[in-house]
Amino acid sequence: MIINNLKLIREKKKISQSELAALLESSRQTINGIEKNKYNPSLQLALKIAYYLNTPLEDIFQWQ
């Protein structure tokens, strides 16, 4: 199971779900699903999230 700190990191950087979704060329619903652990992002999307949040991938997503 993958757990994530996306919501915590996103809020700390003062970025809304909609703003992050626009940067990622994704939907706000996708970001919401990832944050609620209802959806696991593809590797490509996970890497883009890490890039746009300027945060190491392993700080956002962790195996448990």
Score class of each variant (00 low, 15 high):
Met1Gln: 05
Ile2Leu: 13
Asn4Cys: 09
Asn5Asp: 04
Asn5His: 08
Leu6Cys: 10
Leu6Trp: 00
Leu6Phe: 00
Lys7Ile: 07
Lys7Trp: 04
Lys7Arg: 13
Leu8Pro: 08
Leu8Phe: 10
Leu8Val: 15
Leu8Lys: 15
Ile9Phe: 08
Ile9Asp: 01
Ile9Thr: 05
Glu11Asp: 08
Lys14Thr: 05
Lys14Gln: 12
Ile15Phe: 08
Ser16His: 04
Ser16Ala: 05
Gln17Phe: 04
Ser18Leu: 11
Ser18His: 11
Ser18Ile: 11
Glu19Ala: 14
Glu19Leu: 10
Leu20His: 00
Ala21Tyr: 01
Ala22Phe: 12
Ala22His: 13
Leu23Trp: 13
Leu24Val: 15
Leu24Cys: 15
Ser26Asp: 08
Ser26Leu: 15
Ser27Glu: 08
Ser27Phe: 05
Arg28Ile: 15
Arg28Thr: 15
Gln29Glu: 15
Gln29Gly: 12
Gln29Ala: 14
Gln29Ser: 14
Thr30Trp: 11
Thr30Asn: 06
Thr30Pro: 02
Ile31Pro: 01
Ile31Ala: 02
Ile31Glu: 01
Asn32Thr: 09
Asn32Gln: 15
Asn32Cys: 10
Asn32His: 11
Gly33Ile: 08
Ile34Asn: 02
Ile34Pro: 02
Glu35Lys: 02
Glu35Leu: 04
Lys36Ile: 12
Lys38Thr: 13
Lys38His: 12
Tyr39Arg: 11
Asn40Tyr: 13
Asn40Met: 15
Pro41Trp: 04
Ser42Gln: 05
Ser42Pro: 12
Leu43Glu: 06
Leu43Cys: 14
Gln44Val: 11
Gln44Tyr: 10
Leu45Gln: 06
Leu45Cys: 09
Leu45His: 02
Ala46His: 02
Ala46Glu: 04
Ala46Gly: 07
Ala46Thr: 03
Ala46Tyr: 03
Lys48Cys: 09
Ile49Pro: 00
Ile49Asp: 00
Ala50Ser: 10
Ala50Met: 03
Ala50Pro: 00
Ala50Gly: 03
Tyr51Gln: 10
Tyr51Glu: 10
Tyr51Thr: 07
Tyr51Asp: 09
Tyr52Cys: 11
Tyr52Phe: 14
Leu53Thr: 02
Leu53Trp: 02
Asn54Thr: 08
Asn54Gln: 13
Asn54Ala: 12
Asn54Gly: 11
Asn54Pro: 01
Thr55Arg: 04
Thr55Ala: 08
Thr55Ile: 07
Leu57Glu: 01
Glu58Thr: 10
Glu58Ala: 12
Glu58Lys: 12
Glu58Trp: 10
Glu58Ser: 12
Asp59Ala: 11
Asp59Ser: 09
Asp59His: 11
Asp59Thr: 07
Ile60Tyr: 02
Gln62Asp: 05
Gln62Val: 13
Trp63Glu: 02
Gln64Arg: 12
Gln64Cys: 11
